[in-house]
């Protein structure tokens, strides 16, 4: 292992930022980012699942048999997803009402399974924690950025606060599904311009 823990953590924030660089996990990225609040909520939920599943997969990596590893990963991930769902229902019900459908779908988010398979199953506990946290925070930031842009243009508010005043005519297109694709495409384009 040439890389340090810090490097494993920071790679998720820019170099391998999941939705933009790897173009993974697009279902929630496009589906829930109609407002910034939704994006952040979804991001935090995914980060929690990612961190916990990475920790557990890494801790159990010598016990989990090679042939049934995917089944084991899915059990671990699904367990944490339901934990998130129940806790969110109990303590953040309005957020749950908005994200409801997408929370169970974290189970099949390929970022979570991808990190378990590609990283946590092969690396130590601390590295897996750093990896999970980094990728998760990167995912949250991407969702927040996309949600922020779509919210400002689509409803004229930023994190619930009005930006342009009452005379602003929102581009409703931006909060619908096609707007999500256009917005994601433009952000990918900008990121590539920076390189």
């Amino acid at each position: 292992m040439a890389k340090t823990i810090t490097q494993e953590f920071t790679k998720g924030l820019w170099a391998e930022i999941a939705p933009f660089r790897l173009v993974l996990g697009l279902c929630p990225v496009l589906g829930v980012t109609t407002t910034m609040e939704n994006g952040i909520g979804m991001g935090i939920a995914t980060t929690f699942v990612l961190l916990c599943s990475n920790i557990l997969v890494s801790a159990l990596r010598n016990i989990i048999p090679q042939k049934v590893r995917i089944a084991c990963f899915i059990i671990i991930i699904a367990t944490f997803v339901i934990v998130v769902e129940l806790v969110m229902q109990a303590y953040a019900y309005p957020l749950f009402l908005k994200l409801g459908l997408f929370i169970p779908l974290i189970v099949v988010n390929c970022i979570v399974l991808g990190r378990a398979e590609a990283f946590a199953y092969k690396n130590g506990l601390l590295f897996s924690m750093a990896d999970g946290l980094g990728i998760g925070i990167g995912f949250t930031l991407s969702l927040a950025a996309l949600g922020g842009v779509r919210e400002v243009l689509g409803t004229g508010t930023f994190y619930g606060a009005s930006v342009f005043g009452p005379s602003f005519q929102p581009f409703e297109f931006m909060i619908q599904a096609p707007g999500a694709f256009v917005c994601l495409g433009l952000m990918l384009c900008i990121m590539n311009l920076f390189e």
Binding site: I63, I64, P65, K67, V68, A71, C72, I75, I76
Partner: peptide, 8 residues
């Protein structure tokens, strides 16, 4: 395999 999956 069976034991690990069952326990999990």
């Amino acid at each position: 395999m069976v034991v690990v999956l069952t326990v999990l």
